[in-house]
Nucleic acid binder design. Structure first.
Lengths: 356, 356
DNA sequence: CCAACAAATCAAAACGTTTTGGATTGTGCG
DNA sequence: CGCACAATCCAAAACGTTTTGATTTGTTGG
C-alpha cells in the first residue's frame, strides 16, 4: 500500500495543467492571474490539501515564520513551573494571528544559554527568539544585538543599546510586601532570591533594601537567602535559615516553587503558617492550592498575559518597529485572600465558558 | 553599525579559497578530502561559528531533524499541567543524543487536532510527530498511517494497523485503587473520567467495572462523573456529585488537576478528606503539595520518563524499526504515603545533586 | 617518456518556493 | 489590416545544502 504522493507546487501545477508560477501566484491572489484560474487553483489546493513547504518558502523568502521560545529545562528536575505553559499558550495564540508558529526549544543542562541562541540564529531555526532568566549583561542579548537578530527578553538588562523586553515590577512588589509586613509588626523579614545572577533578583533586593531604609529597619545580610528556585533547593535553604535564626517571622519568596519549599521547611521546623507562626509572601503565576493559604499574601502575575505581551513585541519588532517603544514593565496584583481570589476567578471563568 | 555577515558554505569556501563541495565534505569527514584540509576547514568553521542552515539541509536531504510534540493549550485556561514540561524535558534530552530538535506546537482551541498534524506533515515542519489525548479511532493516527508519517501516540488506539505508542496502565491502576478502597470498606466509589473520548478513559472505566464485578459491588451509572480535567470544571462536576449523592465515600480522580478540583469541592461541601470524610485517589505526575495529603492515595507516573520513552520510540521509528516493537504500557507506582514519598525523593535528589 | 591510476578538488544539479523578466494571446483602436 | 496594449501565463534564477559526475594534479609502472 503506497502512501499518497506529497503535494507540492509542481504536482499541483501538473494536475491543473498550469505552470508553477501561475499556481504560486493564484494562491496569493496575484492580480496577474485570471480570477477564474485563481478559483480553480484554490479549489484544487484545498481538496488536495496543499500547504506550502516551510523549508522551500524560507529558502526563497528568508523567513521561517517561526518564533523560538527557550524553555529552561533543568528547573523541571523535580516540579515544573506550570506557569511557563500558560506563557507558551499566550505567545502561541498571539503569534497565530500573524500566522507565525511557536517552537519551544528546551535548554538542557548540557548546553550553554548562548549556544542555544546562536544555534537558532545560525541554523535559521526561527526569525526571532524569546528568552527568560535575563541577566544585567546578558550575553544572549548582546549576541542578538550584534547580529541584529530580533529578540524579546523576559526580564530587563543593563545594556546600553535599547531592546524589547517584558518584565515585572519586582522592585515595587517586594517594596510593597516589606512595607506591609512591617506595618503588621514584623521586624525580621527574610528575602529569598534566586541564584543565577538574573536582573530581577537585583530589583527584588533593591525594593527590599529601599523599604527597610524607608522604614528605619536595619539591613541584615544574613536575612538574604539565595538558592535555586526548585522546591527542594529552596526548602533546604529555608530550613537552614529558620534553624539558625529563630527570630525570622516573615519570608518574601520568589516564585511559586520556592513558596512551596518555604512551607515545607516551616512545617519541618514546627512552625505553622496557618497559626500565624510565619508569614509567607509569594510571587508568581496562577497559584496552586496550598496547605496554608491563610498566612499567605500572593503577588500575582497572569503569565498568559506575559506571553501575549512578549509575542506582541516580537511581531512588532518583525514589522520594523523600534525596540525603544517595545519595553513593558507590568505591575503585580496583590492578593490578600487567596481563597476569595480563587472563587472570584472561578465564577468569572465559568461565566466565560458559558457564553462561547 | 552593520551586523556581521551570516556565514554559509559559500562565504566559508571563499574565505578558505576552496570550493563549496570540498568544504561541505570536509565538515563531515569525507574520505575524499585531504586530512590537512579537513582540519583547516573545521578550524575556520569553528572560529567563524558556522552551523548548517536548517532550511538548506532539509531541502537537499528531505530531513528537518526536528520532531514535533503537540501541546494541548486549551487545558491551560486556568492551571497548566506542569507534568507536560517534565515530559518535554524527557523528550528533548533524548532527541538531543541524535541531534534532533524538539519543536512544541501549541494546539489552541481554534484549530482541530487533525489540522495541526496535517500542517506538520504537509508544511514539513518536522520529520515526525508526538501527540497525546489519543482516541480509539484517532483521526490523527489514521492520517499519519495513511501518509506513512512517523508518529508516536501517547495513549493507545483501537486501529488495526500497528503503530508506536506509549501509554499507562490505567485499567490496572483503577482496578487496584477500587479493590483497595473496597477492602477499606468503601461501598459507593465514584469514578471521575475526562471528556474528549480519549482511549484511556475507556480503560479506566473497564478497570473500574471489572473491579466492581470481581468485588460483587453493583455498577451504578450515577457514580461515573465525566468533565474536562481543569481544576474548575472538575470542582463543579465533583460538587454536583457530592451534593446529589451524600453516600459517596471515595473518588477516583483522573489527573492532578481534577484531584485539586475534587478537594476544593469536598471542602465546599463540608467534607474534610483529612478527617476521613472522603477518600481521594489521584493519578498523574509528580504531585504538588496539597492541603489534605493524609486522605490521598496517589498513582504516580514519572512524566520525564514518559518523554524519554516517547522520544526513544520516535528515534527508533526514524531508524526504520517496525512499529510493532515500539509499544509500551507503563505501570503506575502506588504511593500510600505522599509525605514519605516526597522526603524520599528529596534526599535522593539532594544526593544526586551533590555528586555531579 | 607515456600511459594508467589514485588523490584531491571542483562544477553543476537538485530539493520547493517566490519573483523577475519574457512570452503569448486576445482586444481595442486608428 | 496592423499596431499598441492589456491580460494571462510561463521559463528561469535564486536561496543553502548535499551529491553525482567530471576535472585537475601527482604518482607509479612499464
Amino acid at each position: 500500500m503506497p502512501s499518497p504522493p506529497r503535494i507540492n507546487l509542481k504536482t499541483l501545477a501538473e494536475h491543473l495543467g498550469l505552470s508553477i508560477t501561475t499556481v504560486s501566484r493564484a494562491l496569493k491572489d496575484g492580480p496577474e492571474v485570471k480570477p477564474d484560474t485563481v478559483a480553480r487553483v484554490k479549489q484544487a489546493a484545498a481538496t488536495l490539501g496543499y500547504l506550502p513547504d516551510a523549508g522551500g518558502v524560507y529558502l526563497r523568502t528568508g523567513r521561517t515564520m517561526k518564533i523560538c521560545s527557550v524553555f529552561f529545562a533543568p528547573e523541571v528536575a523535580d516540579y515544573g513551573d506550570a506557569g511557563f505553559l500558560a506563557q507558551v499558550e499566550g505567545v502561541s495564540r498571539t503569534l497565530e494571528t500573524d500566522s507565525y508558529n511557536l517552537i519551544v526549544l528546551a535548554q538542557t543542562a548540557s548546553q550553554s544559554p548562548l549556544e542555544t541562541v546562536r544555534r537558532v540564529f545560525q541554523q535559521r531555526l526561527a526569525d526571532g527568539i524569546i528568552f527568560s532568566r535575563t541577566t544585567p549583561m546578558d550575553e544572549r542579548a548582546r549576541f542578538c544585538l550584534e547580529f541584529k537578530f530580533p529578540f524579546v527578553s523576559f526580564g530587563r538588562t543593563e545594556l546600553h543599546s535599547p531592546h524589547a523586553f517584558v518584565d515585572h515590577d519586582d522592585e515595587g512588589g517586594v517594596y510593597d510586601a516589606v512595607t506591609r509586613l512591617a506595618a503588621e509588626g514584623h521586624k525580621r523579614i527574610a528575602l529569598f532570591n534566586p541564584t543565577g545572577g538574573m536582573t530581577y533578583a537585583g530589583f527584588r533586593l533593591r525594593g527590599y533594601q529601599r523599604a527597610l531604609a524607608d522604614l528605619g529597619l536595619p539591613w541584615d545580610r544574613s536575612l538574604l537567602v539565595t538558592s535555586p528556585l526548585s522546591v527542594w533547593a529552596s526548602q533546604a535553604a529555608m530550613g537552614d535559615l529558620l534553624a539558625r535564626d529563630t527570630g525570622v517571622t516573615a519570608i518574601v519568596c520568589a516564585n511559586q516553587l520556592s513558596m512551596f519549599g518555604a512551607m515545607d521547611a516551616a512545617q519541618e521546623q514546627g512552625r505553622d503558617p496557618a497559626q500565624g507562626d510565619l508569614r509567607i509572601i509569594g510571587f508568581g503565576g496562577m497559584p496552586f492550592r496550598m496547605p496554608f493559604e491563610q498566612g499567605v499574601t500572593y503577588y500575582y502575575q497572569p503569565q498568559r498575559r506575559d506571553g501575549e505581551e512578549l509575542a506582541r513585541h516580537m511581531l512588532a519588532l518583525l514589522q520594523g518597529e523600534p525596540a525603544e517603544s517595545l519595553q513593558t514593565v507590568l505591575p503585580y496584583q496583590r492578593i490578600d485572600d487567596l481563597q476569595r481570589f480563587r472563587t472570584d476567578l472561578r465564577t468569572q471563568a465559568m461565566a466565560e465558558a458559558r457564553r462561547p
